[in-house]
Design a protein around this nucleic acid. Sequence first.
DNA 1: TAGGCCATCTGGTCCT
DNA 2: AGGACCAGATGGCCTA
Length: 181
Amino acid sequence: MKSKGKGVKHARQPWTEPETDFQLETEPGSSEQEGSEVSVQLGGRWRGSREDRGGTPLMSRRRRLHGSTKERNVRRLESNERERQRMHKLNNAFQALREAIPHVKTDKKLSKIETLTLAKNYIKSLTTIILGMSGSCLPHGDSQAQASASRLLQCYQQHLEEGEEGLSKYLTQIHNFSQGS
DNA sequence: TAGGCCATCTGGTCCT
DNA sequence: AGGACCAGATGGCCTA
């Protein structure tokens, strides 16, 4: 059960077999029974596949339902749990990103979209600063700036391969360089 | 109360 | 085949 800090959010009802919430439709001529293929229409709209959404021909709206109701229930619950864990990991990564980017500290935490936007801007400004530093050492116009940019990328990739420690060394070097220049 | 943000569920598709 | 990934749907909480 999750908490958002300012209140407890109640989880939705565990997965249950479709009953009256949406209509079950079967292909003309097909029989509806356990394990048969069915299509689902929700709120008057098909919950189609990606191809369906994309407009390309739909492979099939129907899906084979494997196993008994109980087995499907168990698989669904396991799948839900995995998805929850995945989203938790994603949120942890967002939190790490929030802590990594400088921003005006307020009581309100950055939303996900704000975090991504600030991170993008932060990267851009760092890049501009670094390229500016390179340019001041080698003031030879655009081609030099391009060379600096590719060198920067090369260094970054190299330090990424060395892991987090290598990356922090790299950032320290940049910091020292900017102090010295 | 409307709108923004979020967590969770769900089913389709991709990947190993 | 099964797990990961993705996007739509849904409903709760919060704030202006």
